[in-house]
Design a protein around this nucleic acid. Structure first.
Lengths: 248, 248
DNA sequence: CGTAGTGTTGAGGTCATTCAATAGTGGTGG
DNA sequence: CCACCACTATTGAATGACCTCAACACTACG
């Protein structure tokens, strides 16, 4: 069951769970894949969409000089390749960054379900709108924030997204990315990511152990990142604030 | 009449012009606005969507240190704020970068039209998917390309988009952005944009006069930018190549 | 005719990069 | 069980891409 998708959509659109049912019914088989597995290959047109149920995945592109840039991170509850459903093909690939569980939905099935349930179509559409908004927010970070601010911003975003997806306890959430992955996400070098991570750790803003992050001081981190969660489309999102209040 | 939208969608989806009619019928009044006018204000929820018919607009955000980052450029045929139609509100604003003509579509009208014409919904959805893809491609440029490559890439993209929108003659197209606008688009300083522009000019890759760009050597520029137009969703896009062959 | 916005160029400074070296980890095979 | 390898994390030193500061020219505009 795609609890994380339901949790995300409930948070975003209110509890109209009835509307979500058709998509759940459309899910075909599930797949378990290892870390480092290509979910989407730009060369190969897909016949089905993948809904991420468990694990992390990254949309990326490699340039001819060998440098990689990750343009999106996917967490449980995210559709990984809605793009290929409506458009010819992507130029970017998607890999798993950890072992993942995927729910597969045939394009054909989705097409039928979507045409029968216009409301569902709007949900999916809205999901891609938020994806776009996230990309634009990353763009702002890449263009006009320092390395430290960028990293802090990413951590804030992931904290909120994972919390909504039900994958965080208190202020702790999994972060299976290697520092290389982080570097390719933030547009930095591995070396610099290491240094900037160290700053966040020594400032006691975060705790990092065994690929899991604990935010020690949400207010400070948020301020440093100049983070405003509203672009994630979850409304005012009292939950994180409330959660943090408990900790504080 | 939104010729540029029709041109764009025809190029992207083939000549199913019948499908486009409902959206054209939904257009209410038109607006003429000056350069520098706020089309979308993140604070003010909108009651209608804007389709850009003429001119350039930019989606942007200003950080607390006063630095601005443009996250999307809109050209004729682009919907400027579909986002606000489905989701609560944006965190980013949209300004006109030149005098613009806008077609307004009431949210209510769009809602009705969209529910009556599922195919149209898919077109709009696909449009936002391409928007997202563009943002991700910019992200790759911001993270992993040099200032020169980034600028070249932007020029390539605009060339193709404007050509499809019917706003380019041969390899010449309007670029009303100031160097400050370009800097905020590319995540650079004005000074550096100036220097990099100079390189493209002295290399005789482009000609720049009176805010209009002429690509002198498409092949060189494309190679420098490592530009692959397929992310724009126009298929193989023979038109530009053909056009260039005439020039060559 | 002053002012504001834009474009251009030089000089010096900084943030992040590359290169390089070391250490820890887990997995594999002898 | 240990040697070996690949991957990851960490830190120092030197280099470089791009930034900031600053000055000046040009245009449009009231």
């Amino acid at each position: 069951m795609p609890e994380s998708l339901i949790a995300k959509w409930s948070t975003r659109f209110g509890g109209a769970e009835r509307t979500f049912e058709p998509i759940i019914g459309s899910i075909g088989r599930q797949r378990l894949v290892d870390a480092g597995h290509q979910i989407v290959d730009a060369e190969v047109p897909a016949k089905s969409c993948s809904l991420l149920l468990e694990g992390f995945a990254a949309r990326y592109r490699i340039l001819s000089n060998g440098r990689r840039q990750i343009s999106a991170l996917h967490v449980p509850g995210d559709f990984v390749d809605l793009h290929d459903f409506l458009l010819a093909r992507t130029t970017q690939n998607v890999v798993t960054l950890s072992p993942c569980r995927l729910a597969m939905i045939d394009h054909e099935t989705l097409r039928i379900t979507s045409s029968r349930h216009p409301q569902l179509t709007q949900l999916l559409w809205a999901d891609t709108l938020v994806d776009a908004e996230m990309a634009r927010e990353w763009l702002v970070a890449m263009g006009r924030r320092s390395a430290l601010g960028r990293l802090a911003h990413l951590i804030c975003e992931l904290c909120v997204r994972l919390k909504v997806a039900g994958r965080a306890r208190q202020m702790t959430f999994p972060l299976p990315l290697t520092q290389t992955d982080l570097a390719d996400t933030l547009g930095l070098s591995v070396v610099h990511v290491n240094r900037v991570l160290k700053i966040l750790r020594t400032q006691r803003l975060i705790l990092l152990e065994d690929h899991s992050v604990t935010v020690l001081d949400w207010c400070e981190l948020k301020q440093l990142a100049e983070f405003d969660a509203s672009y994630l489309g979850f409304g005012d999102l009292e939950l994180v604030r409330a959660e943090n209040a408990i900790l504080a």
